[in-house]
Amino acid sequence: MNPSGIEDVIAKLRRSGFAHAEANIGTFAVRLAALIPQVLSSSFADQAQRAIDLVKRAGQAVNTPDLIGQIARDVDSKGVDIELVSGSNPVKVNLQPDLVDFARGKTSALTIGKIKLTETITFDLGDGIHVSASDTSVKATITITVTGTRNAATGEYDMTYGGTIDLDVNTALGSANG
């Protein structure tokens, strides 16, 4: 399989993952504001929008490092684990190539059936989400998981998404994590 083809697929998955996270942060902010309006400051929506804008900018700036030189560590039946470093956020990628069929001569070309990509974004106080005016520090950690499964008929990768948003809030009254 052509390595540059994989680079293109990974870049596409990353962009799509950021776009998905961007939409989910918006939904998360609306639901949070509806659940606990007495805690949230009036500017919460504005601050959540800043986080959405940050993810949007990060998604637009996505690039994928050249795969040439990446050592194919831990090659086994679970696939090939590699770690890409792009900016300050490392991206973990697990490739599941059909090494067994290829080595048995059942297929003439090596294909990658599944790509799992995990990326973590952490917002610091300056760019983060302020839940209430008494917050002394707020950290938001967003983990994006995108899995691309190769469609044998089309050769394209069907995507599924997952991820978490962790808020770590310290206020004058105490701290909360959730």
């Binding site: 399989m1 052509n2 390595p3 994989i6 795969l67 040439i68 030189g69 990446q70 050592i71 194919a72 090659v75 090939v80 590699i82 490739l95 190539p97 290829f102 080595a103 048995r104 001569g105 297929t107 003439s108 070309a109 090596l110 990658i112």
Partner: peptide, 12 residues
């Protein structure tokens, strides 16, 4: 054993 080399391995 770079990833690129593995992806471009020759078939048996």
């Amino acid at each position: 054993t770079t990833l690129a080399a593995l992806l471009a391995a020759k078939p048996p």
